[in-house]
């Protein structure tokens, strides 16, 4: 199902302290597409994603999934949050964390068990059901968080900087994992990130937002075919798109503080390589 974002606007607070987080924004994510949303701090990218997830109400405009307007968390849409440490339930085992994700769907027990197994296998964590999240490494926990989203067999997966909290190597692995999962589960994916390399590497399309107020400034197609950590980043298309996004994201930042550069650049470790 296509995901239509139509004239969405978000204002926090009201009266004299109101703050425009995201100005009118429209775009459509086609079924099966993988888009990434990038932009500097305060551009409203997370806000936009939370509205797509039905967790925040837009101040104006609306979002439709197919023909159904989103007014709350819709069925078939799963969310992966930035901070696995804060979004998983530490008092539940991995198995329970996953099976509870399907609680609202009222599925038969055997079906839930099958899906939990499948999701854990898909993220390469088969047999970890009895562990508690805090007994695992950060990368493993984030994979649990992704598996939890898969249990509902979503048609749309929304990811809010899912890889921001893990180390560079784990991150590269997870990027490929997410791509593989998209194919395996046949999902539409929208992923917020502040990492430009990552945005270009994973997505079919990069949506670029600017800050103050948050607004859409570019919608860049990426035509890369099959991704590969070794070769893709050397391809001319990748280099070109990366430069394009980089310039767009940096432009507003160049006039403000230079301090945010570190965040907007690609990963230091990758640049060195």
């Amino acid at each position: 199902m296509d995901l239509h974002v139509e004239g969405v606007k978000k204002v926090y607070g009201d009266g004299p302290t109101a703050r425009l987080a995201l100005d009118e924004t429209s775009f459509t994510v086609e079924s099966g597409q993988f888009i990434s949303i990038v932009g500097p701090s305060g551009c409203g990218k997370s806000t936009l994603l939370m509205m797509m997830a039905g967790l925040l109400k837009p101040t104006a405009g609306g979002i439709r999934l197919g023909s159904t307007p989103i007014s709350g968390p819709p069925p078939g849409v799963a969310v992966v949050f930035q901070d696995y440490g804060r979004s998983l339930f530490p008092w539940m085992t991995v198995g329970k964390n996953l099976s509870m994700a399907a609680a609202a769907d009222k599925l038969p027990k055997a079906e839930v068990a099958r899906r939990v197994d499948e999701a854990l296998t898909a993220v390469d964590l088969a047999g970890t059901q009895a562990l508690y999240p805090w007994q695992m490494s950060g990368g493993m926990q984030q994979r649990v968080a992704i598996a939890r989203a898969l249990v509902v067999e979503p048609t749309v997966m929304l990811m809010d900087e899912p890889l921001a909290a893990v180390d560079a190597q784990t991150r590269a692995d997870l990027e490929d994992l997410v791509l593989a999962l998209r194919d395996r589960y046949d999902m539409t994916v929208a992923m917020v990130t502040h990492d430009i390399d990552e945005a270009v590497y994973v997505a079919d399309r990069v949506i670029v937002l600017a800050a103050h107020p948050g607004r859409l400034i570019a919608d860049i197609p990426v035509d890369l075919g099959r991704r590969d950590q070794l070769t893709t980043k050397a391809e001319p298309e990748f280099v070109k798109r990366r430069a394009e996004v980089f310039t767009l994201v940096r432009r507003p930042a160049a006039t403000s503080s230079a301090g945010s550069d570190a965040e907007l650049d690609g990963r230091p470790s990758e640049l060195k390589a």
Partner: peptide
């Protein structure tokens, strides 16, 4: 968190 991508105003 620092960027607070939660639904709290």
């Amino acid at each position: 968190g620092d960027k607070a991508p939660t639904t709290r105003v």
